[in-house]
Amino acid sequence: MKILHIDSAITGEASVSRSLTAQIVARLTAANPDAVVNHRDLNKGVPAIDTEWFHAVRQTPENPTEAQNRIIETSNAYIEEIRDADVLVIGLPVYNFTVTAQLKNWLDQIARAGVTFRYTENGPEGLLTGKRAIVAYAAAGTPFGSDLDFASDYLQHMLGFIGITDVTFVPADRLAFDRDAGLARAQEALDQIAA
């Protein structure tokens, strides 16, 4: 088993999503001792897509410049990490009702027509199939799955868009109101995960 462990919280050791992703990875590796884990901390920086990215990645120049090659290589590296993984463990801290900027940047980097999805007569088709994602959702005030939660549905949609449809959430929500109850809900969901 190959595990891609992704964190994006800005709160360091105080992060609930980081704690949960670590627990999920520990559970998976305990059940699969030969598992290989690749950890990607998006908080260390993920370039936002921009005009230069568009010209380098989407327009695929015949003779890319050195700067364009660096942009292409960065996007390709994120995609190769996913291709190489059997399981993605993703930390989803909710900031201002949605995903972190870093996680959004990562999703923008990996959603590439002809690479991770393709357009067909029946609509888009994801190309990174056969993978599983386990998402550690952490929110101070946003109830998981509520009308205020613009994070979980969006992430699940984007994962499905690139072909990852087996998605499980471990939600620790409403932590600002009752931290113990929120953590207990997460532990209950964690206990249900088949390793």
Rank of each mutant, 00 (worst) to 15 (best):
E73L: 04
Q156N: 10
I90N: 02
Q192S: 10
D166E: 15
F169K: 01
A56V: 09
R132V: 14
Y78H: 13
V135H: 02
F97H: 14
G114A: 03
G182T: 10
W53H: 15
H157V: 00
T51N: 09
A194E: 13
W53D: 11
R185I: 06
I10G: 00
A181S: 11
I24A: 05
D7F: 05
E73S: 08
A184V: 05
I162P: 00
S15R: 07
F144A: 03
T65R: 00
L190I: 06
T29F: 12
V46A: 01
A26E: 15
R132A: 12
K131S: 05
R70M: 15
D50L: 04
D166N: 15
R185N: 15
R27E: 12
L42A: 05
N76A: 15
I110T: 02
V135C: 02
T120H: 11
T116A: 08
L92V: 13
Y119E: 04
N32P: 04
V135A: 02
R27Y: 08
V94H: 08
P171R: 11
N105P: 02
G91R: 05
A151Y: 14
Q68F: 05
E13L: 04
S19E: 14
D191P: 01
D34Q: 14
V135G: 00
G163W: 09
L28P: 02
A35S: 13
F161G: 03
K131I: 11
K131V: 08
L183R: 06
I110M: 01
T116D: 09
D153G: 14
F54W: 10
T129A: 13
A189Y: 03
Y154V: 00
A176L: 12
M1Q: 12
Q23K: 15
V135R: 02
A111V: 14
F117I: 07
A151F: 14
A26K: 11
I79M: 08
D149P: 06
N96F: 10
R58L: 15
S17F: 10
Q192Y: 00
Y137R: 03
A172L: 07
L183F: 13
I72M: 07
F144W: 07
M1A: 10
A176T: 05
A26S: 14
A140R: 10
A14C: 02
V99E: 08
N43W: 13
G12C: 04
F144P: 04
Y78D: 03
P143G: 06
E52K: 12
A189W: 03
E81C: 00
F117W: 05
F150P: 00
D191R: 01
L42E: 06
I193L: 14
Q59F: 09
I164N: 11
D191S: 08
T74I: 15
F161H: 13
M158S: 14
T165Q: 13
P64A: 11
D147N: 11
L128C: 11
P47R: 10
D108Q: 02
V46D: 03
R132N: 09
L190Y: 06
E81P: 00
T21K: 06
L42V: 09
E80K: 06
G160N: 13
V87A: 01
G45M: 07
T65K: 00
N96R: 05
V57S: 05
D108A: 01
A111L: 12
N76S: 13
V94W: 11
A31Q: 13
